[in-house]
Design a protein around this nucleic acid. Structure first.
Lengths: 327, 327
DNA sequence: TTGAAAGCGCTAACAC
DNA sequence: GTGTTAGCGCTTTCAA
């Protein structure tokens, strides 16, 4: 592969001129421009990005830290991050942290050694310090890390208020809330929205801890539905737990939405594939990913960002697990 | 951050000696070793991977080319690739090709400019040439690209033979095969297995083209079930299309598995979340990803590989869409 | 065993 | 406007 020196030689100019031309930086005469263009074409020259990174001390890639790409929330996010990164010439490195502090630190270290340009982080088990001391741009997604770190998230509280209210409007009077893990921002916010929605209404309420995960949600729901047969509505803090709840209902022979209505949260495509289709509070996952990436790139390129906190609106998607619409 | 020169100075040896020590290459005396170790610890030295890449003309990362990470088959694959890569010190770059030739070429070019060490490819719309001319190790996953390129795949033919036979054993006599896109290796192989299974039996058969995708599968299934009400079994070439078929059945009020039995192919987690649970031919997706990655790394490191073609066995997972087991 | 020094290919300061 | 050249931090050859 031809390098910049070959191009310079071929074009009869200096390396510096070629570099200036490539980077559209500094003066290059029209004539020089033309010969250089020619030479680049002839030699099929492509700049060596590694050399560039070395001298600039920055590589054009972004680390995307997710707990586990197998959790259906993340592929769409990854997709968005990747799409936007591509248009700005960045490449994304996928890091599954497994909520494991050491693994995450290891990734961060390794990528720093590779001059990573910045991180998008969707986990928050590391001390905020780790990120703030990074000397590298970071954007938090779906989670708050630290006031100094820009954050993109859904309007979780409003979303669950919406979802819960829908349940109430459809006639539920005894509602189970499958809240997500304590201490996880979105889970707490969703609980808050739920509580606000039932507040002051004549609703019997159960709030139960339940991971954002299918199998355990199924177990927990089954158990709870057995214990409190009068439950007629479930607000699940994630679609995965809603799916577990639905399965539990099915296996207990409870008719959904006849006897029990369910609302999930996330809007992953799984929801429409289930029967009945899952009514859910849909996040615009792609949009969150895209925005986070744009913010990160601005940070990387030292452009001003308008807001430190961006909330992406959420919508109620009514499907078959509540009574409103089609079965 | 300290660099190798700092370490050398601190240890009172030359840069070359430090380098030799770090890479466990060439001679380093015991004493030298010890001082260097000390200095590295004191200075918290980490080698600069970009500089290393530049001088070695190879970076420790792997390009993973998938059509679309949002297709539920790929996250698990990505997960496996990532896990194995990590243990060998490689980093994975996620590339969504969208089955778009130019996009894929663009990725390949960009990553080459970054001295990518090799590729794992799960698409095959580019001419095999593109890959063989790459001068870089490539492993094909779930798809054959070229005889010279090692391939890891499931035993697709045997799998669909298994699945179809199961349908027949459970009493199906009028089977619809939702075959995948023509020309796509696994889809063709699965069809072959299906045909082999029904061959010579008194089975009425329909074979219909259907993408590996939910919505279209639902449409197509609905249509077909309407046209041929005597269909009592569907062999879908993917879990996503099976999910579409199941939804179609539900919406037509057809009882599954009472009147209609369905078998999918893939074994993604979606299958267990549906009601009834999806009987499917499960691929060991994680294993495929892990093996492919190990093969690629061997190739990268010039180690011998035992087999050019690796077939990962497949298993029939019986759930509720066929009559055998639990509902 | 060790060290000096020449790359790897590009950027950018500085001189012309 | 353009060219020279000193880095960026590491590997590796070759001589000592």
């Amino acid at each position: 592969m031809a390098n910049i020196r070959d191009v310079a030689k071929h074009a009869g100019v200096s390396v510096a001129t070629v570099s200036r031309y490539i980077n559209r930086k500094g003066y290059v005469s029209k004539e020089a421009k033309e010969v250089i263009e020619q030479s680049i074409a002839v030699l099929k020259y492509k700049p060596n990005l590694v050399a560039r990174s070395l001298s600039k001390k920055q590589a054009k890639f972004i680390g995307l830290i997710v707990p586990d790409i197998m959790n259906p929330f993340f592929p769409e996010l990854a997709r968005a991050v990747e799409d936007v990164s591509l248009t700005y010439g960045y490449t994304v490195v996928l890091c599954n942290s497994d909520r494991n502090t050491e693994k995450e630190i290891h990734y961060i270290e390794t990528l720093k050694q590779k001059y990573v340009a910045g991180f998008i982080v969707t986990t928050n088990h590391l001390d905020a310090q780790h990120y703030t001391n990074l000397e590298l741009p970071v954007v938090a997604l779906d989670r708050t890390i630290h006031p100094s770190i820009p954050t993109v998230s859904s309007n979780n509280k409003e979303g669950s208020y919406l979802g819960t209210t829908h349940l109430i409007e459809q006639g539920c009077r005894h509602i189970l809330c499958l809240r997500g893990p304590k201490g996880v921002g979105p889970a707490d916010d969703r609980l808050a929205g739920f509580l606000e929605a039932v507040e002051g209404k004549e609703i019997q309420v159960h709030v139960i801890d339940c991971p954002f995960e299918y199998n355990q949600a199924e177990q927990i729901s089954k158990q709870t539905l057995l214990t409190y047969p009068s439950i007629d509505g479930i607000f699940a803090s994630s679609d995965l737990s809603a799916a577990g709840a639905l399965k539990a209902a099915h296996s207990l022979g409870i008719d959904v939405p006849g006897e029990l209505q369910i609302v999930g949260f996330d809007g992953i495509s799984l929801g429409e594939m289930m029967t009945p289709g899952l009514t859910t509070v849909a996040q615009d996952i792609y949009k969150m990913g895209a925005i986070a990436t744009r913010v990160l790139i601005k940070l990387i390129e030292n452009l001003p960002i308008e807001h430190k906190e961006i909330q992406v609106p959420v919508t109620l998607v009514q499907r078959g697990t509540t009574r409103s619409v089609e079965k």
